[in-house]
């Protein structure tokens, strides 16, 4: 099996793992971690497509590569906002759960 094919399979597995992590984990930070894993899997699929477009002496198509760089930065920005929201949730509500039921004790908002 060639390298790009292997990495395509790895990217698919990572997306699957990310979907699994987002759905089953209760803690929002773990969901966020899973979201990042999912994102990196998608980027990797993009990278393999770029690799398939190797031409004109370049190892890969630079257009999808540049798109992935932009994507990584946007994913980072989203993560930063999500983390800020999460720490705000904790300091306002005293918990980090996303469940509907109210916190055990009094409402601390």
């Amino acid at each position: 099996m060639s390298g790009p094919l292997l990495f395509w399979l790895a990217g698919s597995a990572l997306i699957g793992l990310g979907v699994y992590g987002i759905t089953v984990n209760r803690h929002p930070l773990r969901k966020l971690l899973a979201l990042n894993l999912l994102g990196s899997g998608v980027f990797l699929l993009f990278g393999v497509i770029a690799r398939r477009g190797a031409a004109a002496g370049l190892g890969g198509d630079p257009v999808p590569q540049a798109l992935v760089i932009t994507g990584i930065v946007v994913a980072f920005s989203a993560t930063a906002i999500a983390i800020a929201l999460l720490s705000q949730l904790q300091s306002k509500a005293g918990r980090t759960s996303l469940d509907d039921e109210p916190p055990d004790e009094e409402d601390r908002s």
Binding site: P4, S40, G60, Q65, V68, V73
Partner: peptide, 16 residues
Amino acid sequence: VRIAAIDVALTEAAIG
């Protein structure tokens, strides 16, 4: 690096 995307590799290591 293995799929010839060094710029992305640097960004992934630094940001991702």
